[in-house]
Design a protein around this nucleic acid. Structure first.
Lengths: 252, 252
DNA sequence: TGGTGTGAAAATGTTCACAGCA
DNA sequence: TGCTGTGAACATTTTCACACCA
């Protein structure tokens, strides 16, 4: 925090903003495909599903890339956000655990198109080695270290059953991986400096269930007094949302 | 907001807390399986990957289910949280789009065990009808309305390619579904009263890439001054996280 | 004139620290 | 005595509203 860098780099971007930048990137890609060359904050916000004030505030953390009275140049803004996120070049990624979900992830075309390249699919089950998924050979998990070293892998994806997740994470960290996307429904303990994000389908569903239950309680006044049913207007776009973790036997 | 209900229900639970309740539920399940009957906020917090102050604050929104000087009864607290979320009984769910991801979701055992029951798998491709995935027959998407009505489905999962997502959502809403979990990388427009949550793998990865890039910038002082590398200590458990959406061609 | 960029206000979320109860 | 439950302080995020400039 002491010496502010000389370049116009090193701004402090709020975490909430960082989480939305990829959404803006996707919206911009959509605009590009529609042949739109310029857009206002209002238009981009609509495409991204946020309000324009938030969008402008978010973009203001990156710099002043718009033109007052005009809007943003789609291509230019796309590049600036991609640069800020760090996806102007591809990140090599390894996926561990080639069960149902691992398969889906390996086939996920959004990887390549969004700045990531799957360099290896690993599975602890030796009988799977040699198999090929999405054109990539499945290898033994034992090869993790050499693959990480060889390709300079910094990001790992865990799609194993829950019981294996911590071991896989430990090996990943030891091998030099410092960012993990965890689909196993398990809290991972990792040393400082390692980032973990989790995706858990059942958590997302439970959050929906909570709100669903509340709606039902209002519509059919059970033991509650009627109240004004207007309260029903809950979310419309995308709930603020939080993390989660998929997998379990899915991934075996 | 006017008339507070007579029962001890209808408390206003913060969204951030709601998003963590499923995590506590999972941690409690783990404790139960380990044969733990009672736990302190410290222990449960560790199992859930949060700090104990936050845990206690969260639980305080539900009521006073702990015992001072002792802690929480695991079984009792499990029930109270499950009741609050609304997963003491199963929620019928339909999954639309049986591609790679749809397959993985259909096979996801965490569904049944966490309060959800997949009552139908639907796909727009007529040639898939009759196929069976995870013991459930794949049916034509045209049957959506009758299935929703028959089973009283309130929650739908969209695992289709992006272009189809909005149409599917519209049909779901028209059929009476009011909560949607969207894996397609597309912003969905839905009427007020309908909740949408999204999961997007590429967004999660991009957030990791952003932090990864920053770590690299600090370790190898490119054009930045060295600074104290201690800053590297970023996240250790699970980043605050925000939504995302998977799928695309994966799901076709 | 129209739309960006941004201070300031409001809302939401987290952490602290300790009163109070079993 | 030990641990919960919670006000109050602090931090972050969102929203407002408007100065400012192409």
């Amino acid at each position: 925090m002491s010496s502010r860098s000389s370049a116009d780099n090193a701004r402090e971007i709020p975490e909430a903003t960082v989480a939305r930048l990829p959404v803006y990137l996707r919206a911009l890609t959509g605009l590009t495909e529609s042949g739109v060359a310029t857009c206002s904050s209002e238009e981009l916000a609509a495409a991204a599903g946020v309000n324009s004030a938030k969008l402008r505030k978010d973009l203001s953390y990156l710099g002043s890339y718009g033109t007052r009275g005009v809007g943003y140049d789609v291509e230019y803004l796309t590049y600036q956000i991609a640069r800020e996120i760090g996806v102007t070049h591809d990140w090599p990624v390894v996926i561990v655990g080639i069960g149902n979900l691992g398969h889906a992830l390996a086939n996920y075309s959004g990887f390549r198109s969004r700045g990531f390249r799957v360099v290896a699919l690993l599975d602890a089950d030796p009988s799977r080695a040699g198999e090929e998924v999405a054109g990539i050979a499945v290898q033994s998990f034992d090869r993790l270290e050499e693959i990480v070293t060889e390709h300079g892998v910094a990001i790992g994806v865990i799609a194993t059953p829950a019981p294996a997740a911590q071991d896989v994470a430990d090996r990943m960290v030891a091998a030099g991986i410092s960012s993990i996307l965890n689909f196993a429904p398990r809290v991972l303990a990792v040393p400082p400096g390692v980032d973990v994000r989790k995706v858990d389908l059942s958590i997302e569903l439970q959050i929906l269930a909570y709100h669903e239950q509340r709606k039902a309680a209002i519509e059919q006044p059970a033991q509650l007094e009627p109240e004004h049913a207007e309260q029903t207007e809950h979310a419309e776009q995308c709930v603020p949302a939080v993390d989660g973790a998929l997998a379990q036997e899915v991934l075996s």
